[in-house]
């Protein structure tokens, strides 16, 4: 599945920046796929706690972990959820642990090593501005 980089306005200037962002359907919430940044520096998949609320995922009994996200300490609770990514030609669905974080400052979800990079062979062509995701059959 190939995706063009998403172009977003630069908050500081009048320019536009392109980022490897894909849309993730969480727990079947098809009406609102969550834009997520592919982030090899993240150890796992991190989303805002509001996503769990929107999807009806109850994390109250999950153990609370303190994480540093974007330079801030946040409270995170993990749940195993279904995730889906689709292009015009194909789709892939898998289950993965996701840490739902509060407060959540980033504008996008973060797709990290556990739960994302261990499910796809990821090729990023920064110059040409596309990302290729090949699901791994395991």
């Amino acid at each position: 599945m190939r995706f063009r980089f998403r172009e977003i306005p630069d908050p500081r200037t009048a320019t536009i920046r392109a980022r490897p962002i894909v849309d993730l359907v969480v727990e079947g919430l098809e009406i609102a796929p969550q834009a997520c940044l592919i982030d090899s520096g993240a150890t796992a998949v991190r989303l805002g706690a509001h996503v769990a609320e929107l999807c009806g995922i109850d994390t109250t009994d999950a153990a609370e972990t303190r994480l540093a996200v974007g330079g801030a300490l946040v409270s995170a609770r993990m749940a195993e959820v279904s995730l889906r990514i689709a292009s015009d030609e194909a789709a892939h669905e898998w289950n993965a642990p996701v840490w739902f974080c509060e407060p959540w400052m980033p504008a996008f979800g973060l797709l990290g090593l556990t739960g994302f990079f261990d499910h796809f062979e990821v090729t990023i062509a920064g110059y040409d501005g596309w990302v290729d995701l090949k699901p791994l059959d395991r």
Binding site: R6, I8, P9, D10, P11, R12, R17, R19, I21, D23, I31, A32, P33, Q34, A35, L37, D39, G41, A42, T43, R46, L67, A68, V69, G70, G71, M105, P106, A107, F108, L110, G112
Partner: peptide, 19 residues
């Protein structure tokens, strides 16, 4: 929708910053 997100208001919101 095809995609839902917050339009970043600063660099912190726009970047992953490796949690």
């Amino acid at each position: 929708a095809d995609s839902v997100f917050r339009v970043p208001e600063d660099d912190l919101a726009a970047s992953g910053l490796a949690p």
